[in-house]
């Protein structure tokens, strides 16, 4: 059974059809690439899967459960986390607080969250992550005061913090310098090897081709191709979508 299955998903904004009848599935432990020209609906797909937007039609299944109508927090509790193309942080919180925030809802109930004060376990995990991502030096800085690259990393860290099963990355390398891209690629491969499932939206073809074993291509809201990097590379439709005929 696929871990995440998207069936005939459509999303309309007024008359604009941002997604039409997209189906795809993600196997456990996979590292799936999602590519397509700007405006092809990739981010919209993530938004529909994570409950940020309600799809107009179609279904999303997670471990066999229909999660189409769940709100974003419920989707999170199933074990799906994500990053954002336009970075979304809590700007007036420190790096550490941002990370703690990303994990605090994962355990306990509403009322234990009020009554239980101890946070050593979570703090330990956050400190490890901070070190892993090379943010130790700025762990007490406000998120708003980080550089763009650091914010991108923090966003990534927040996705890892709750120890999810599936991580959706929306253009994690965009606007990041080459050294950091290398580091991020290594992080993703490393985490994937430890069993995390990834779906990665990425424009950097080189990165996608080397990172992913399977790639799905969207164009104007439709899935136009799916296959190994080599197959995608030789696919005429994909070239068309990117460069026009």
């Amino acid at each position: 059974m696929p871990l995440l299955e998207i069936r005939q998903l459509s999303k309309h904004f007024f008359h604009l059809s941002a997604l039409s009848h997209v189906s795809l599935s993600v196997e456990p432990g996979e590292l799936l690439g999602l590519i397509g020209p700007n405006g092809s609906g990739k981010t919209t797909l993530f938004n529909c899967v994570t409950g940020v937007l309600r799809p107009s039609r179609g279904h999303v299944f997670y471990q066999g459960e229909d999660i189409t109508k769940l709100t974003a927090d419920a989707v999170y509790h199933r074990g799906i986390s994500r990053t954002f193309q336009l970075i979304q942080l809590f700007p007036e919180m420190t790096v550490l607080e941002n990370l703690l925030m990303a994990a605090q809802e994962r355990t306990g109930t509403l009322f234990t969250r009020l009554l239980r004060r101890d946070e050593t376990e979570e703090t330990d995990r956050a400190l490890k992550l901070v070190e892993y991502l090379g943010l130790s030096g700025v762990k007490d800085n406000l998120a708003a005061n980080l550089s763009y690259g650091q914010q991108k990393l923090l966003d990534f860290g927040m996705a890892l913090m709750p120890d999810p099963q599936v991580i959706l990355l929306d253009e994690p390398m965009a606007g990041v310098n080459p050294t950091m891209i290398k580091a991020l690629v290594t992080h993703i491969q490393d985490l994937n090897a430890r069993g995390y499932t990834f779906v990665v939206i990425e424009h950097n073809m080189e990165v996608v081709m080397s990172l992913c074993r399977r790639i799905v291509v969207l164009s104007q809201g439709e899935k136009i191709a799916e296959g190994t990097p080599a197959e995608i590379h030789d696919n005429a439709d994909v070239m068309d979508a990117y460069f026009g005929s």
């Binding site: 994570t50 927090d73 509790h77 986390s81 979304q88 925030m101 994990a103």
Partner: peptide, 9 residues
């Protein structure tokens, strides 16, 4: 929106 995505009900 971010709060909801990190599980805040």
């Amino acid at each position: 929106m971010r709060a909801e995505v990190v599980g805040v009900s």
